[in-house]
Nucleic acid binder design. Structure first.
Length: 878
RNA sequence: AGGCUCGUAGCUCAGUGGGAGAGCGCCUCUCUGACGCAGAGGAGGUCGGCGGUUCGAAACCGCCCGAGCCUACCA
């Protein structure tokens, strides 16, 4: 056993155990089981994706929950899978084609889609491998892809049912169009970017107005002012002949409340074809739509001499031309937020086209209600308001995309009678006239299918046992960035089609940033690759870091030093275990039963018990950081720092074999339990060590999660242990301050406060001797020893003999400092107690505590003073 | 424009009404037989500012300053 390396080497451990766990089927959930269900559906990463910090955090937290619940006896399901990511995936293949000098139209739709599938089969699973590397204990046998047959069936079912209930409609509306991706985008898929622009004031006959988009001037069909704007009242209803770049145009002036009279000149040009507000104004006033910019971002034939120009080039030319005509009044610099495509950052062009929409209001209402009445909890609670704000102002959702990759809209049009048919099954002829049909060319927004994820992955629309057992799922773990994209939509669909929320809890975690607080992004070059980190520090250390930093409601700044710190923690555990393992010979748990356990054993077990309670409570409340630091604190600073040091003595002693056995039993019991407690956070190292320790069962993964109980709490042991730790610390402190080298054995006298304490100290003397490298004498009465330093531990007095070891001047200074500290404390408490209001109004126990505190410090001060006086009187030693 | 979050030790952050905490860093000491990825000890803070509520505020309320995020149809 002593041949175990003194450095923990994750590379020797992680992959091996993961394979074992998977092969033994530990990850698998049971469709039907007497055990209570606990289910999490994984937010499906893009099939094109590779593991980044966000995924790492997200999945670590899920794995912690799942592993904990699995050990706790639940029938756990962690449902994994990937998302077909329409635009992103199509982009990947288009780039490949471009490299070959081809475009997707060269292949045609069918061949293109076939190629995407081929790519998906060959390289789409990268992130899955990476999740395994992270230790994710998903039920891989249930892995799903949003385009799988079953999931596609769910998509069709939902589309048809929504259509039948008139919650889906089709129509010509203005949409966000990405000229690069050549598709419509939902409002959510448009992001805002601050950009500098020019605010151009153009003369429109007698009026002047400002715009940042002069090129849309060619599509103007009216001018608008606010109905109450006195300045322009006279123009409302009139038609103006306005000189412009291509001669004079006729524009009527309408009054519309959408115009802000305080902005610019209070007049706007109305371009219904290229602006969402103008589109609305146009509908209200029956204005025609003039489309002057095409789907390719170039000016159309209607743009006259500007036809064919790129929209931005056209903007420059128009300004030039207007200027030449003297129609520009002035130009101001202007900074505004412009809408860009979330995938390619191209400036979005609002365009009118025929698209499919979901009427969201009727779906959103139940989803709001579910959160309000607590059927779905959002944690931390603060995100509720964000959720409500969006849901209550929700707008209809454009679900059609002009892509080839995705779920094709299940609508067929008859080529003969022009009829439209929405169908669950593919149609080959018109159900009405038997004529030839063609399917709608658009596909659905990817979020339409991922919005069904909790349903479809469990088999819906079939009534599967999985659905029955695991729906609603227990918890969803996700980042706030997809609260609307995904969470809100799952809630709407879940309530609509399964009659209940998709998950009871939604835990929203932080964003991982770099050490400077910047969002990690490829373009900034500040990404930290989780795989590199795992190679360098080990997966356990990495996972633990993420959990330890995952405080609610705050972003995580990830600095490598932190990971290094937790790598050291892993090493600490390794070495502590090495100590235990190398002292196992002669271990016989039966023999230890009878004897009463010594104080230190009772103490550490009690501490462990309270740690378990703390960890469980923290995990129940999704306080991952609290759980992690409770384990860290216990394992390092109680078990290693104190108990192991104490245990070493008992293990070494040949004189008392029973004591050795008892210590072995406690060591193993505490270490083994702690490993189980830690396993959800650090699955690999805990398994590796656990397997080497005496244990029951095949794997720590399926061992029981520790439980705290009042029976295991031993407050008396904790009370008795405290002064012992206090004395050891006091002696070490004096040693250090008096600059006595660690090698010198000190003489120490303890004068206990009472008879009970005297016995305890006498019993603990050997222990104190070992821990503080001293020889302690317990003496209840008698004079204080000559030439000694003094410390007060609670009400016990500690004298450290320094005669001949060090001169006493330093000790005088030290005592003076201690006295000062005590006096500050006394003054503080006295002031508080002197206030009548405090004594009158504060709870009795608080007042009592303050009084006790005051007494305590006064006693302490008295003893310190006595010591100082004594030292001052003694002759200086030289 | 509206909304939200944050400002605590040199750094990163816990701590939601009763004695200011952790990790890292820093200083001193230790080649003690689990671990130097370690051990022991220590220094370091008017809890952003100002007011208010309270017997009592880092915490609750208001205002201000500073940082960040989200939502939005100011063209």
């Amino acid at each position: 056993m002593t041949s175990i390396s003194d450095r923990y080497d994750p590379s020797q451990v992680e992959e091996r155990w993961y394979r074992v766990w998977e092969a033994r089927g530990y990850f698998r959930a049971e469709a039907a089981s007497p055990k209570k269900p606990y289910a999490i559906v994984m937010p499906p990463p893009n099939v094109t994706g590779s593991l980044h910090m966000g995924h790492a955090l997200n999945n670590t937290l899920q794995d912690v929950l799942i592993r904990m619940k699995r050990m706790d006896g639940f029938n756990t399901l962690w449902m994994p899978g990937t998302d077909h990511a329409g635009i992103a995936t199509q982009n990947v293949i288009e780039r490949q084609l471009a490299a070959e000098g081809r475009r997707k139209d060269d292949l045609g739709r069918e061949a293109f889609v076939a190629r995407v599938w081929k790519w998906k089969e060959e390289s789409g699973g990268l992130i899955i491998t990476q999740l395994k590397r992270l230790g994710a204990s998903c039920d891989w046998s249930r892995e799903r892809f949003t385009m799988d047959p079953g999931l596609s069936e769910a998509v069709r079912e939902v589309f048809v049912r929504l259509w039948e209930e008139e919650l889906i409609y089709r129509g010509d509306y203005i949409v966000n169009w990405c000229p690069r991706c050549q598709t419509a985008l939902s409002d959510l898929e448009v992001e805002r970017e601050e950009r500098d622009a020019e605010f151009v004031y153009i003369k429109y006959g007698p009026l002047t107005l400002g715009t940042v988009r002069p090129e849309t001037k060619l599509g103007d069909t009216a001018l608008a002012v606010h109905p109450k704007d006195r300045r322009y009242k006279q123009y409302v209803g009139k038609t103006l002949d306005v000189p412009s770049v291509e001669g004079t145009i006729r524009l009527q002036v309408v009054a519309d409340a959408a115009v802000d009279p305080k902005f610019g000149t209070g007049v706007i040009k109305v371009t219904p074809g290229h602006d969402p507000i103008d589109f609305e104004i146009g509908r209200r006033h029956n204005l025609p739509v003039r489309t002057v910019i095409g789907f390719d971002g170039r000016m159309t034939e209607l743009a006259g001499k500007y036809a064919g120009l790129d929209r931005f080039e056209c903007r420059r030319r128009i300004v030039e031309d207007l200027n030449a005509l003297g129609l520009i009044e002035r130009i101001e610099p202007y900074r505004h937020a412009v809408g860009v495509c979330y995938r390619c950052r191209t400036v979005v062009e609002p365009l009118v086209s025929k698209q499919w929409y979901v009427r969201t209001k009727p779906l959103a209402e139940p989803a709001v209600k579910a959160v309000r009445d607590g059927r779905m909890r959002i944690i931390p609670r603060g995100w509720r308001s964000t959720y409500f704000a969006w849901m209550e102002n929700i707008r209809d959702w454009c679900i059609s995309r002009q892509l080839w990759w995705g779920h094709r809209i299940p609508v067929w049009y008859c080529d003969r009678d022009g009829s439209l048919h929405v169908s669950r099954v593919d149609l080959t002829e018109c159900p009405q006239c038997g004529g030839p049909v063609h399917q709608d060319t658009d596909v659905l927004d990817t979020w339409f299918s991922s919005g069904l994820w909790p349903l479809s992955t469990l088999g819906w629309p079939k009534e599967t046992p999985e659905l029955k057992t695991f729906y609603p799922t227990s918890c969803l773990v996700t980042g706030f960035d997809i609260l609307f994209f995904w969470v809100a939509r799952m809630a709407m669909f879940g309530l609509k089609f399964a009659g209940d929320v998709p998950f009871r809890d939604v835990y929203i975690h932080a964003l991982v940033r770099d050490a400077e607080g910047q969002k990690m992004s490829k373009s900034k070059g500040n990404v930290i690759d989780p795989l590199v980190i795992m190679d360098k520090y080990g997966t356990d250390a990495f996972r633990f870091t993420l959990a330890a930093l995952a405080a609610q409601g705050r972003d995580i700044r990830l600095a490598e030093e932190r990971i290094e710190g937790y790598r050291n923690f892993a090493n600490k555990i390794w070495n502590a275990s090495r100590l235990v393992l190398s002292n196992l010979d002669g271990y016989d748990p039966q023999r230890a039963r009878s004897a009463a356990p010594p104080l230190a054993d009772r103490w550490i077990k009690s501490r462990l018990n309270s740690t378990i309670g703390h960890v469980r409570k923290a995990l129940d409340r999704y306080r991952f950081n609290e759980a992690a630091s409770a384990i860290y604190q216990f394992l390092w600073h109680e078990f290693c720092d104190w108990y192991l040091e104490i245990a070493k003595r008992s293990l070494d002693g040949d004189d008392d074999p029973a004591r050795r056995t008892r210590t072995q039993v406690t060591l193993i019991e505490v270490l083994e339990t702690t490993l189980r407690l830690l396993h959800p956070f650090m699955p690999f190292i805990t398994e590796e060590i656990w397997q080497r320790l005496p244990h029951a069962g095949d794997s720590i993964m399926v061992a029981q999660y520790p439980t705290a109980s009042r029976a295991n709490a031993d407050p008396r042991a904790e009370r008795e242990m405290a002064p012992i730790i206090g004395v050891v610390t006091a002696v070490r402190n004096i040693r250090s301050e008096s600059r006595v080298p660690p090698s010198v054995e000190l003489q120490v006298t303890v004068r206990p406060a009472g008879a009970e304490a005297a016995g305890a100290f006498a019993e603990a003397a050997p222990l104190i001797n070992a821990l503080a490298r001293c020889v302690v004498t317990v003496r209840s009465a008698g004079p204080r020893p000559r030439d000694s330093a003094f410390a007060a531990v609670d009400s016990h007095e500690v004298f450290v003999h320094l005669a001949g070891v060090v001169d006493l001047a330093a000790e005088r200074l030290r005592l003076a400092r201690e006295i000062q500290k005590a006096e500050d404390e006394i003054a503080f408490v006295e002031t508080r107690l002197a206030r009548r209001e405090f004594v009158k109004r504060a709870p009795a126990e608080v007042v009592e505590r303050e009084r006790a505190r005051l007494d305590e410090h006064r006693r302490r001060r008295a003893k310190l003073r006595e010591s100082l006086r004594w030292i001052a009187e003694s002759p200086p030693t030289t």
